[in-house]
Design a binder for these strands. Structure first.
Lengths: 224, 224
DNA sequence: ACCTGAACACCGTTCAAGT
DNA sequence: ACCTGAACACCGTTCAAGT
């Protein structure tokens, strides 16, 4: 549906500069194209759609072709999750920001990216987040806690607590959305229903409060 | 392997007492037997082994027979997870226990059950925990927070924070175990390796500290 | 170098049929 | 009431083959 026909050699800019180009045109597939296609498919059809065959179909190619670029299905998962974290990892708070504000905005961006793509929150609970964007987000929080006034041990505990909180909050948020959608047929649920925009605002407000609770604990500890 | 032959009518005790027993013996399958078999299989072979066909094989029956007792695979997941939470939900702290101690021991039991069965932590991140044992654990924490001195809003935030923390901590703990096992071949990892008992003690200590951090935040808030 | 095609050993689930 | 058997529409992954 409206997909640029896969065999078209529309390669844009660098086609005139780098490659030998005499014998053969560039490959139809690239890792980036695969990641983009995977994310598009997941956004459209949800986590269950992540199969080698359907990703391949999204790209106008056969499932087995993907194995030239990734070793297994899990790699596709990891690449897609880290892909949607790019938005969150770009434009992190600078080093001049107060530590607690830096923690809060970084955590919020992390959480927002995971919940903006429900499939990402689902996968994040089952795969470790080790991609470059996830690491950049983690490192910003680690750096912020270095200014929190606590000792090394206290910082290590705080880091874990924040990581658990971000992941747990994202996971339970999307689980609650599913539950709300599934129960949406009942009268009670319908009576309690609010607009999607309001629901999102409520979710975000809860997340901020939960992070603030943790920050209060960190401050209480470093003051003690 | 060493399975009691499935067609044997060894029904134990109550065979002499209750059922009509004239026309037909009891069913080979029961929901409880299915849950027990599923847990045994998962403990032995991990989360990937949870397929209808393999659970059925574990019980000496055909995959399609399971559909008489459960509607779909997800039900098996939910039943197994709540099944292993039974140990945690039995013997919760009584109402005379101080609220913070009650929160800590209940959270610890919850976390311990999920991490004692790695598959349960994996599934818990992807399925909402709505079984009777999960609800009993949640309710004990809710009740404890009622004595924490905070307002209703503060309690609601604290409940979410604790739930996120328990789920997030269990998930990241098993993910780190997998990572440690996968990297176990490298020299660095081998040098840093500790005995399984020590590793478990470290995990548990971290969990306690993380919960204590949250409790410190709750106290700071209710005191403010 | 990069992609296809056939093949293997699986899946969940439905449904008619047996007893 | 409870279980089997056949069938459908899928899976991930390997590997030889094409270009």
């Amino acid at each position: 549906m409206a997909e640029p026909e896969p065999s078209s050699p529309r390669r844009s800019d660098s086609v005139f500069t780098r490659p030998p180009r005499g014998r053969r045109s560039q490959p139809a597939l690239t890792r980036d194209r695969i990641v983009a296609g995977t994310i598009a498919l997941l956004d459209r059809e949800g986590s269950a759609a992540l199969t080698m065959r359907r990703v391949a179909a999204e790209l106008g190619v056969h499932a087995t072709s993907l194995y030239w670029y990734v070793a297994r299905r899990e790699d596709l998962v990891d690449l897609a999750v880290d892909g949607i974290l790019a938005e969150a990892a770009a434009g992190l708070p600078g080093p001049e920001e107060p530590w607690d504000l830096a923690v809060r905005t970084t955590a919020r961006r992390f959480y927002a990216a995971l919940t903006a793509h429900a499939w990402a929150a689902e996968f994040a609970g089952v795969r470790p987040l080790l991609g470059p964007n996830a690491l950049a987000l983690s490192r910003r929080i680690v750096a912020a806690l270095g200014d929190s006034g606590g000792g090394e041990e206290a910082q290590a505990v705080a880091i874990r607590a924040l990581a658990n909180q971000i992941l747990g909050a994202a996971t339970t948020t999307v689980a609650m959305r599913v539950g709300a959608a599934a129960g949406g047929g009942t009268e009670d649920a319908r009576a309690a229903a609010v607009s999607a925009a309001d629901a999102l605002a409520v979710e975000n407000a809860y997340f901020d409060q939960v992070i603030d609770l943790l920050l209060a604990g960190i401050r209480a500890r470093s003051a003690g």
